[in-house]
Simulated assay, not measured.
Amino acid sequence: MNPQLHKLTRMASAPTRMIIGLMSGTSLDGLDIALCKFSGSGRETGVEVLEFTTIPYPEDFKEELKAISFKEQVELRKVTLLHKLVGSRSAEMILGALSDWNVAVQDVDLIASHGQTIFHAPFSLHHNPELPDSTLQIGDGDHIAELTGIITLSDFRQKHIAAGGEGAPLAVYGDYLLFADSVENRILLNIGGISNFSWLPSSGRIQDLFSTDVGPGNTLMDQFVQQHYPGKYYDKDAEIAKAGRVNPKLVEALCSDPFFNQPFPRTTGPELFNLDYLEQAISASGQEPLSGEDILASLCSFTAQSIVSAIQQTVGDLDYAVYLSGGGMHNPLLVEMIQSGLGLDLKDTTALGINPDAKEAVLFALLANECVAGSGTSYGYGKGIPNVSMGKISLPG
């Protein structure tokens, strides 16, 4: 037997597994690396986050990624080259983090790499009945495995699509296993570039599980800042937006896209919510010219309204608690607007024992743990939540 396959067999039945989870979102700002210790699987999963760091991408690398991300036409040569480069850069960052943490490479059982999304194309975005739902993440798992010497799982979203999903959101799998509660109805709200949430009913009825993308999270605000405020990549602490005033007519135009009338669950990405989308809304609302401050305040309101509306439409009058994660939780104006719209105080996943900045990386590590050690957890065959084991395995050596 191949010694790496033998290693997989042994770790599947071992009492614990050390797994590194990697996540880089649509903001393209850097790589989240979480070192996790797992025990069990399914509803018996236990996880301890031993270490976590975010390593920023160098500016030139970030610009290379931006050149091929979320655009209908890009240079295929550059996509091909960056597929390898994202993988090898990820491996370098992992090795550097392990060195900083004084953790030996041989002590790590698995790496779970989300990869870098460069295009998300569900039917709801491309509208071509002759074409399937699809998505593309780059960052080759073989390069990560070979350069680190650690078995690597990657390309998780393809299996989700193959089983009838849209490739997103995947957080519901980990949210259910780690955070479902028998007393409290919970919403796990992640505000990254795109916002999404998982509904975890206290009833325990897995057929009632629900997960959906909502719409923009930080992506429109970040894109606008990067274009109009040189040297800034995002509106830190909402300093710019707080200096502006929400323009109701612009917010109404932003909310008028047919996407918001699609049934739940639904998925989306910066392929739709980009600066062209903003310019069209400004024109349609007749609100030119507007100050940058007013536009950012309005974009913040747009994100908040889309989140509040989605939760109210899907959850109704039930009592629930909302737990935040993702970069948007650090935007105080956005959080204030969501709290006002929902009429409740928001918490974050620190209250549930997981660093909210690390949550997405931890959840992909959990998907790897399920792939290797799981025994077929049922998620109730809910719409958009196929019962699948995700992750392609790359063996080193």
Score class of each variant (00 low, 15 high):
N2V: 02
Q4Y: 11
Q4T: 04
Q4L: 10
M11N: 06
R17W: 09
S24R: 05
R43Y: 12
R43W: 04
E64W: 08
V79C: 10
G87R: 10
S90D: 12
A91T: 06
A91S: 13
I94F: 02
L98W: 12
A104G: 02
T117C: 03
A121C: 06
S124D: 14
S124Y: 05
H126E: 07
E130M: 14
Q137D: 09
I144P: 09
I144V: 14
G149H: 06
S154K: 12
Q158K: 12
K159P: 00
P169N: 05
L170T: 02
D175P: 06
Y176T: 12
A180P: 01
R186C: 08
L188N: 05
I191A: 00
G192H: 00
G193H: 00
F197Y: 15
V214Q: 02
P216E: 02
T219M: 11
V225C: 04
G231V: 03
K242M: 09
R245S: 11
P248E: 05
C255D: 05
P258I: 13
Q262P: 02
E271P: 06
E293F: 07
E293K: 15
I295F: 06
Q305A: 00
Q305C: 00
I307F: 10
S309A: 11
V315C: 13
L342A: 08
G343V: 00
D345K: 13
T350L: 01
N355V: 03
A358W: 09
A361S: 14
L363K: 05
C371S: 15
Y379I: 12
G384F: 13
N387P: 12
K392W: 05
S394H: 14
